[in-house]
Design a protein around this nucleic acid. Structure first.
Lengths: 362, 362
DNA sequence: CCTTATACTGCAACCGGTTGCACGCCGGCA
DNA sequence: TGCCGGCGTGCAACCGGTTGCAGTATAAGG
């Protein structure tokens, strides 16, 4: 094969490969490697590789010719080969507990929407998302997936971010990003919502709309984000000169059931309650259910503000007034910032603004 | 390096590598390839490869020695290298729509639980699960993921199994498995539930417990599984000598909202309704909510039987009587049978038994 | 004792990319 | 005319596994 003079038009270059349209159709199915493209373009496979990666080393005409050839023949680069060669997988792992019930259920709806958000955020970056099932007390999964070159890093969300596990990951130098708050001592990437503000604006809205006895129905008491939301709740009350009544504060575990039971407790403690700020939409659904089962009306008798703005808050029969967490953006940032960390080592800690979405329950 | 005589005890073989415990600790971090293991074991890397893959070619002692070395040094085989060499990715793709709201929301809870089931089912098989986001009208994703060697095949569930897409996959010869029913003409792998029986036993139970006017609240009218469930419903009624009242039949779209609106329609058409068989737990939740909002009691005034037995049916405040689909088993079979198809070309069509779970709503 | 079968093991090619380095060709300048 | 530098390209090694085939040692059989 002789090399083509570069000053010839592209169409002639094509024909110079010595195959007509029909033959090309036949080959379409067999063009699988950059070497095939190289043969078609009369160049070496290094040139093809560089051209497809937009390397500045390559002459522009050559690059375009090769790229259009690749397009024409529907060439897909071989991921394992590239990953092997480059020693990175271009894949992130989404950590979830192995016994799927814990994660893949309505109780973890926020985590699942976040999964969708991360998946969407990853697409434009050319990365893939792998589901990484983890045994609760196993500590080897990280090395297992990392050292085998299956993923370049991990995304941890609510259900899998126990303190102990995070510390271990940090100690082992595993690249990961966390949905949640950063820690003072150790440095790792995080994305979280502005929970203080969330708690504050929810409560302020209830105050502003004339509610007198505003309850706080929290998530797990030991979670930082819950503490922050509670802090925001107190701030709003204090600013309004209200008394902080401990009987107005109860905690659940984010589940629908706990929304019901916690609401029951709250109403027993404070029968004159006329509003409640609930730490998740799923719990809010439970709370509303309980309130209605008592013969009270939402929002007339008791106003309810949820948290997260899940889709089910929007499409519920009685659409929920709630604090929106920007889940698509959160997913995008989890994806982008983890990849940035992997590539550059830059640690980012993002705090996302939240916003009050007024619907029908308050 | 001289080869070790095989009749020497294992412990000596270890020492023969000429490194003490401390050195071995040091190396622990650098043992990344089978070549490293080969050096340690004084064998060639082919032998290590075969030993780790339990090849019968390898002497049992040698194999055990190598395997324990691998364990000791915490060796993880390099996935890209193996995938490249074997020309398979050992990874399955779970197809979901790209704009995540469509999939990763409570409306698609069954699909999400199935995702968890597939993930769990895949683990013991040594396969990974990749999230494959698909643009609704894109037809190139399959080749994109397959030809790039990122996945060996696909799992399709409810939200992504439009007829057109399936036909295209079949025509292109893409390996996939479907949650749903097989088609008479084309042959591909499927796993589905026994919807006729499901519809029948739900209805029979309502008849047996003395209900007189039993409604059918279906999923989308054009879905085969819905037709089967309706067929089962009719069978039960006919067997009991009941009249088939078309006013007792309404349809929704599996969503919570549609459960509410369809229930409303049903009660308007048949105010004396005293039971309803609903095609999904999520819709059942909506139906129950509407019934209660009318001041009627569940199950005293109106009995409700759901479908799927999602976790939320179990943990709901008023646990739902429902038709259990064995989701963990479904996931396991989707995983196993797709892999079997990929490896052997055997097409399987499984119909899973369903079962009535009696709780509080009927 | 020699032949041949058997049981292991090693060599080397291969999977399909990436990339450091060498090389050829060109124009510009002395 | 000769030398130099830069641009564009190709060669070949490498990433870390798998596997066909050849080779060796040992045992079995004649």
């Amino acid at each position: 094969m002789t090399k083509l003079p570069l000053d010839k038009p592209l169409s002639i270059s094509y024909n110079a490969t010595g195959c007509n349209d029909q033959e090309r159709m036949m080959m379409a199915k067999t063009v699988q490697t950059i070497e095939d493209i190289a043969r078609l373009a009369n160049v070496s496979k290094s040139t093809v590789s560089r051209a497809l990666n937009d390397s500045p080393l390559i002459n522009q005409e050559t690059r375009e010719r090769i790229q259009s050839l690749a397009r024409e023949y529907n060439f897909r680069i071989n991921a394992p080969a590239r990953n092997l060669s480059m020693r990175q997988s271009h894949t992130l792992g989404f950590v979830s507990y192995a016994c799927s019930g814990k994660n893949f259920s309505a109780e973890n709806m926020f985590g699942l929407e976040l999964l969708g958000g991360v998946s969407d955020g990853l697409r434009p970056l050319g990365y893939d998302l792998l589901v990484v099932p983890v045994e609760p007390h196993d500590t080897t999964w990280a090395h297992q997936y990392l050292n085998s070159g299956r993923v370049d890093g991990f995304v941890l969300t609510i259900s899998t971010r126990k303190q102990k596990m995070i510390n271990e990951l940090v100690n082992m130098g595993i690249p990961f990003i966390l949905w949640g708050f950063p820690q003072p001592n150790s440095s790792f990437c995080t994305v979280c919502g502005d929970d203080v503000t969330g708690g504050r604006i929810a409560t302020e809205y209830l105050i502003r709309t004339g509610r007198q006895h505003i309850g706080f129905l929290g998530g797990p008491m030991d979670e930082i984000e819950v503490k922050y939301r509670h802090h925001g709740y107190e701030l709003a009350l204090q600013n309004a000169g209200r008394y902080l009544d401990p009987d107005l504060v109860v905690y659940g575990d984010y589940s629908h059931t706990s929304g019901i039971t916690a609401m029951k407790r709250l109403l027993e403690q404070k029968p004159d309650l006329d509003a409640v700020f609930v730490n998740s939409d799923v719990m809010a659904l439970g709370a509303i259910q309980y309130i209605q089962s008592c013969g009270k009306r939402v929002p007339e008798d008791i106003a309810v503000v949820g948290y997260d703005d899940l889709l089910l808050a929007r499409y519920n029969n009685l659409p929920i007034t709630t604090i929106r967490q920007n889940i698509p953006l959160a997913g995008k940032l989890l994806a982008e910032n983890l990849i940035q960390y992997i590539q550059t080592g830059v640690v980012t800690n993002v705090n996302l603004p939240v916003e009050l979405v007024i619907r029908k329950t308050a």
